[in-house]
């Protein structure tokens, strides 16, 4: 399967070319950029990142753990103060709050690794120029589409188009 790499200098050209390629029915598109550009990421992946689910699950786990742990421990080792109930919810809110943040934050980081597929080998199309100042658009397509994709990229001010495999 041919893999075409187009090199761009401006993020808006990347967005235009991704949109046009998608409009022509090419779906196996990946872009590489030296810095975060929301417009590019949204053009390639339309849905919001799944990382948000991880934060939610982490935060909820944290708040439940915080209250459950404190209430259970207060009743397991009972300290009687003036006949009041053993567990005292207002101060336990602080523990619940801190654990919400702690678990939420840790799971968000885990979400980045899973959703962003970190911890794997880099794709063969990756080049150090994408960590300089250039952008890459990589399309995998059928042999007969190569010329069409090249035309679209060049039309959107690609500085270079090459076939890597």
């Amino acid at each position: 399967m041919p893999t075409i790499v187009g090199i761009f200098e401006r993020p808006n050209d990347v967005v235009d070319s991704v949109n046009r390629l998608k409009g022509r029915g090419f779906t196996d598109i990946e872009t590489y950029s030296p810095a975060p550009f929301a417009e590019i990421d949204d053009a390639v992946i339309e849905k919001p990142s799944r990382v948000r689910g991880y934060t939610l699950v982490g935060g909820l786990t944290g708040v439940v753990t915080g209250y459950a742990m404190t209430i259970w421990m207060a009743n397991d080792w009972q300290i009687m103060v003036g006949g009041k109930p053993f567990s005292s919810i207002p101060p336990y809110t602080i523990i619940g709050f801190e654990l919400t943040i702690l678990f939420g934050g840790l799971l968000t980081a885990l979400g980045l690794f899973i959703v962003g597929k970190l911890g794997r080998k880099r794709n063969p199309e990756y080049s150090p120029r994408f960590s300089a100042e250039e952008f890459g658009v990589v399309v995998k397509c059928r042999d007969r589409d190569v010329a069409e994709i090249e035309a679209v990229m060049r039309d959107n001010r690609a500085t270079e188009v090459s076939l890597v495999s």
């Binding site: 872009t31 990421d41 949204d42 390639v44 968000t108 970190l118 080998k121 880099r122 960590s131």
Partner: peptide, 20 residues
């Protein structure tokens, strides 16, 4: 960790930064 600046990674990264 195999960072390559792909849109998949940046999208997750921006969302992570926002949530953190």
């Amino acid at each position: 960790c195999g960072w390559q600046g792909s849109s998949k990674q940046w999208k997750a990264h921006s969302r992570t930064t926002l949530h953190l």
